[in-house]
């Protein structure tokens, strides 16, 4: 469990250092070869950097993600929710 915590922590912290110093392979490989052959990456179809769109998207994703997480959390953990069988709800059957 401790090893998993350390791994997850490292995976969360390393990206903060990675992005500033080193380019991703999308730039250094994919886009490089595409450019050499006359293809360039287009701007994203939905450019979320315009105005407050990013904030709105963040809010929308947070709302949807929060709803989904809560909904499935309840299904997984709450007694009597859809994920529990009738037998589990009632406990072991009496002989």
């Amino acid at each position: 469990m401790k090893a998993l915590c350390v791994l997850l922590f490292a995976l969360c912290v390393l990206p903060a250092y990675a992005a500033d110093k080193w380019t991703g392979v999308d730039e250094s490989v994919v886009e490089k070869y595409a450019k050499e052959h006359g293809r360039e990456a287009a701007k994203p179809l939905i450019n979320v950097e315009q105005g407050d769109l990013q904030l709105f998207m963040f809010l929308l994703a947070g709302t949807i993600g929060g709803f989904a997480a809560g909904y499935y959390w309840r299904k997984l953990t709450e007694p009597g929710a859809a994920g529990q069988t009738q037998k589990q709800q009632n406990g072991p059957e009496k002989e």
């Binding site: 997850l8 995976l11 912290v13 990206p15 990675a18 500033d20 380019t23 994919v30 990456a41 179809l45």
Partner: peptide, 26 residues
Amino acid sequence: LVIFFAFASLAVASDAMAMHISEGIL
């Protein structure tokens, strides 16, 4: 743990560095 570290990773969010094929390349 997964939920906590998902939020932790948002706290240090940075520009996406991906291997995925970017928009318009193909």
